[in-house]
């Protein structure tokens, strides 16, 4: 087991290098440069200034040299300073935005699991029943609804008209003056709509997945055996079938580790949430190379770690895999 782990870790290094090199080259291929924001269409900016600014960012050096410098810093776990006008360390900018994105994504995954899991199981157990059909329609409506549209409708209806929820942001304007429980409630209150909207679209995929897994499992011989030996339906479904049907969920959870930090440009923009999705989008638009690379590297590492964890999780849950 330890040898397996060590091997997997060693394999990750060249993979990560490859990912960063390709990302680095591709983002530099896109037309435009970080200095453009200050100098383009600015009647005051001279050609000399443009060159000077480029030199300050090392943009005048060959691409591979720039990559080497960047890699040298990365080894020391330094993502460098942002090329945007604030020039803050990329690490700080990410650290500032990461908690809220993780909080929303964890909450939304829990909500998806909590709602879609039971829906999937019940649909499978009562295949083709009214419940099965109704939830199928419901989750596909969720899947097909554009999140920005749903968000705006909810904001207008529940926020403006009935005043039940705050519309945007993550804290109220008087947040600083609230007591601690008040502050916690304030944040939860602000996050309800965003979490609901981001989870709503994800229900379909997971519940359908759960349903088909379950359908697969209940057809197996060991379920027949369980029924044959006279176990109650409840024990058959929730003890024998469910455990096996949940196995693939581990894969999904493993794959969703990188999405935890991804965030979504659309709902972060609509709800004015200072998260990673918006930051990444802005960085791309401004060609802020260090910030783009920082987010990509973290995403790549988490994807690799997520895959590893999923494999390990499999091994733990399933003796057949463990013994192979």
């Amino acid at each position: 087991m330890l040898r397996y782990l060590a091997k997997r870790f060693l394999m990750m290094i060249p993979l990560l290098l490859g990912i960063t090199l390709i990302s680095f080259v591709v983002i530099h291929l896109a037309p435009g440069e970080p200095t453009d924001l200050q100098t383009e269409l600015n009647p005051e900016a001279s050609a000399d200034l443009k060159e000077r600014l480029r030199a300050q960012y090392d943009l005048d050096k060959p691409l591979l040299v720039q990559y080497g410098t960047w890699l040298g810093r990365l080894v020391k776990l330094d993502f460098g300073d942002s090329f945007s006008q604030d020039r803050r360390p990329v690490m700080d900018k990410i650290a500032e935005r990461l908690p809220i994105t993780i909080a929303i994504n964890v909450a939304s995954i829990i909500l998806i699991l909590g709602v879609a899991g039971p829906i999937g199981i019940l649909s499978a157990v009562r295949q083709n029943s009214f419940f099965d059909r109704a939830t199928t329609v419901f989750v596909f409506i969720g899947f097909a609804t554009p999140s920005f549209w749903l968000a705006l409708l909810l904001m207008d209806f529940l926020g403006v008209r009935y005043g039940l929820f705050p519309i945007s942001g993550i804290t109220s304007m008087d947040y600083e003056y609230l007591s601690l429980p008040g502050r916690i409630w304030d944040i939860i209150h602000h996050l309800m709509l965003p979490v609901f909207v981001s989870a709503f679209g994800g229900l379909a995929g997971f519940s359908r997945y759960m349903r088909s897994n379950m359908l697969e499992v209940v057809r197996q011989d060991y379920i027949l055996t369980a029924r044959a030996k006279g176990l109650g339906e409840r024990a058959v479904i929730y003890k024998h079938a469910l455990r096996n049907a949940l196995l693939p969920v581990i894969t999904i959870l493993g794959l969703s580790v990188p999405t935890l930090i991804g965030g979504s440009v659309i709902f972060e923009t609509i709800f004015a949430i200072p998260g990673m999705g918006k930051m990444f989008y802005d960085s791309v638009m401004m060609r802020d190379y260090p910030a783009i690379m920082g987010v990509l590297v973290i995403g790549a590492v988490l994807t690799l770690v997520g895959n590893l964890l999923a494999d390990l999780g499999y091994a733990m849950a399933d003796p057949r895999i463990r013994n192979r």
Binding site: V160, G163, I167, S168, G169, M173, T269, A272, P274
Partner: peptide, 20 residues
């Protein structure tokens, strides 16, 4: 004076109507 950063102009308009 508080500058609220709201990247979407539809949201901004809803916030305005809601008093935010």
């Amino acid at each position: 004076v508080i500058y609220r950063i709201i990247p979407d102009s539809s949201t901004m308009f809803l916030e305005l109507q809601a008093g935010g």
